[in-house]
């Protein structure tokens, strides 16, 4: 554990809590892509099956349980409790276009052909693109609520901090996980446009609106 990974995990946790609180407090999931949340739940489920097979640390296990539980709680809020506020007309990204390539890629490029390893690899690839339905929704409506933009910023910052952590680990432990690093870089690049608008608009107190 190093400071970059810890900060990354904290950003990740903050993102999830911000999203849950936003939906809970406003009693509405308007502007939130349920499809991205389905993909994230799938990411955590396939990656954290190792919860039953390997023990790393108490921190590691507790965080995994929190990520799993919060992702299913988010799905419950969107698809059950506040279903009436779910903006399905704007959440039209076809997730099979992400799921199928991720399945194929994880069968082609993986560290090892064991079921747990394949699920882990799939989860890494899927996480890289899981935010696309949400970004697609924002681009379709041309705007995002300020709180939604904070959520997206924290979620994007998490993987960016992990990249710094991987560089640090490369120099201190002299090894690197090629799959995680390449996927993590792609994941961070997908947020680049958003980061730019967030920094130039939201941090200056303006609304998050895409240029017309």
């Amino acid at each position: 554990m190093n400071i970059f990974r810890l900060l990354g995990d904290i950003c990740h946790l903050v993102a999830i809590i911000v999203l849950l609180l936003k939906i809970w407090k406003t009693r509405s999931c308007a502007g939130i892509s349920g499809k991205s949340q389905i993909l994230f739940a799938l990411v955590y489920t396939t990656r954290y099956v190792d919860l039953f097979f390997t023990y790393v640390s108490l921190y590691n296990s507790v965080m995994k349980v929190i990520f799993l539980a919060s992702s299913y709680a988010t799905l419950y809020l969107i698809y059950v409790k506040f279903k009436a506020t779910y903006d399905f007309n704007h959440d039209t990204f076809r997730i099979e276009f992400l799921l199928i390539p991720c399945v194929i890629l994880s069968l082609l490029i993986t560290h090892d052909y064991s079921p747990v390893e394949l699920l882990w690899t799939f989860s890494i690839y899927l996480e890289a693109v899981a935010i696309l339905p949400q970004l697609f929704m924002v681009s379709k409506t041309g705007e995002a609520e300020t709180i939604t933009s904070h959520y997206l910023f924290a979620l994007g910052a998490y993987r960016a901090l992990y990249i710094v952590n991987w560089i640090y680990r490369y120099y201190t432990e002299s090894f690197i996980d090629g799959i995680a690093v390449v996927a993590g870089i792609i994941q961070t690049i997908l947020y680049a446009d958003f980061f730019y608008l967030y920094i130039t608009k939201v941090l200056k107190g303006k609304d998050f609106k895409l240029p017309a």
């Binding site: 990974r5 995990d9 990740h12 190792d50 390997t54 790393v56 640390s57 590691n60 965080m63 995994k64 990520f67 560290h111 390893e117 882990w120 992990y162 952590n165 991987w166 680990r169 002299s174 090894f175 690197i176 996980d177 090629g178 799959i179 995680a180």
Partner: peptide, 10 residues
């Protein structure tokens, strides 16, 4: 081998 799986990460 510098390639290694980071399974201790989240």
């Amino acid at each position: 081998n510098i390639l290694h799986s980071f399974k201790d990460e989240l």
